[in-house]
Design a binder for these strands. Sequence first.
DNA 1: CGATATCAATGCACGGAGCGCATCGAATGG
DNA 2: CCATTCGATGCGCTCCGTGCATTGATATCG
Lengths: 293, 293
Amino acid sequence: MDTRQMAWFVALGETLHFGRAAERVHMSQPAFSRRIAELERDLGARLVERDSRNVSLTPAGARFLFDAREVLARFEAACRDARLVALGEKGELRLGFMMHAAHRLVPRLAGLYAERRPAVRLILEETTPAEIEVRMRRGELDAAVTFLGRPDPALEALPLLRDRLRLAAPEGHPLAGRERIRPADLAGEALIAAPASTAAPLREAIEGWCAGLSTPPRFAYEPRLQQTILRLVAAGLGVALVPGSICDDRIPGVASVALEAAPQLDVVLLVARAGANPAVAPLVELAADFRGG
Amino acid sequence: MDTRQMAWFVALGETLHFGRAAERVHMSQPAFSRRIAELERDLGARLVERDSRNVSLTPAGARFLFDAREVLARFEAACRDARLVALGEKGELRLGFMMHAAHRLVPRLAGLYAERRPAVRLILEETTPAEIEVRMRRGELDAAVTFLGRPDPALEALPLLRDRLRLAAPEGHPLAGRERIRPADLAGEALIAAPASTAAPLREAIEGWCAGLSTPPRFAYEPRLQQTILRLVAAGLGVALVPGSICDDRIPGVASVALEAAPQLDVVLLVARAGANPAVAPLVELAADFRGG
DNA sequence: CGATATCAATGCACGGAGCGCATCGAATGG
DNA sequence: CCATTCGATGCGCTCCGTGCATTGATATCG
């Protein structure tokens, strides 16, 4: 028993005429009669009353006609939606992103994406670069905005922007008034930075810049979120090296200072190379435009 | 494209294994592989990613799996419901009835019917005996409670109860105090009765009883509803000959008097002889019980 | 690193489901 | 009373869908 039988019966229910219904479904009348009889046999219920002059629906037939229309509509919709999802026109797109990107990058991306694919539900998951790596590999994310990390053959990294590290210091701190600082200026300072297990590329950039120091910097606090780091700086608990874009909006109580030979961090859009979710395609295009603009 | 393909795909989606899915739907693995490939071809979308070691759903496949489950469930429900309607276990039953029956008969019937067929929606349509005849013949009603009228080969009449005509007169009226009256007592009285076009059997019974009078009775008012008739009587506008059961509940201002050789009216359950709606069967049984009790 | 096992895809031949054509039987209308 | 209409049935044929055998690719283990 299948939906074709339903479609045949709907044709019959609408015409109440075997010949015309058969014609509508591109079948000969005898074949059509047999299919309807077969449907009734399978169902174990008489659906039409035929007295060789006119055809009428039984109560069961009327009910089945009504239900069949709905089932067929949903069937068609399911097939259409599968196609749309395959084309990336509909469905879901899980976009992971690190907190740094939440300020400007992700909102802009999300807005532009929604214009191109209004029917795709964009699921935003804020997390950390380390988590992103794991979840991308497991296929739990379709794409992610993160720092460029170790190259992965299965993942493609599309550059979005390049960020320079800056110093974030409490207002009134001796370094806060400087035009530009060198690694040596950090001697004895309490540093605040996320641990490598949260954002390896960022941590490596920080430690790399400090590598020249005779006494290695002291990491006083290691919270995971950039938000927290800046709050701790504002509270005067230490200084931090942070991506410059973070300092775009002034945080009360925090001053930002340029670094000499500031390390650069690439913020990239990470997508699976073997395109799992077709809905990522417009996001990739967006990344290219983004780079240009 | 039909629901069998959906069922096959659901098996695959749940096992993620061609061999086991094929087994579940009683098919060999090669045939199953082909059916899935065909489904993907018809849909124009890849539903599963197979890398010859394990099978995984694409986004389109996941969506289709979800939708397919729903479509299949509704499909099954539609088939099941058609069967139930054919068995009279579910669906609708349109029961017409004349106003006279609204007082006690129909509420009791409806209550007992609902106990036997809780899934059948009983649609009650109050109307007149004349209207009932027409609508039964057109198949717009499945059954009706009405006076026994002219026998119709297509309709079966099952006796429910037998009602004697009584006189309804305004309190204080000369006839109101009588024990029993004869047709001659009505001479000169203003009669109130529904027209023959509304309830032929009732009207005929009334006119038949009055047939012996030298001067035929004067029909002062001819409203269609029994309710109206009794109100007019209460207002002192005339007297009426009404089915006795109507007088069961006392109407303020109306007295009822027995008739000599009172005509009897059969109240019957009318059903189509060629049982159109299977849901009437328990109603027919009910009518038999009713006659007994 | 090679042998083995597992699993989906493909080649091939067969059987039957489903089709169209011709026809029948019943009912209707001129 | 014959012509027409319409659904059901008989019959032969075609091709779709099946199972069996096999291939090709890939992971697992000695």
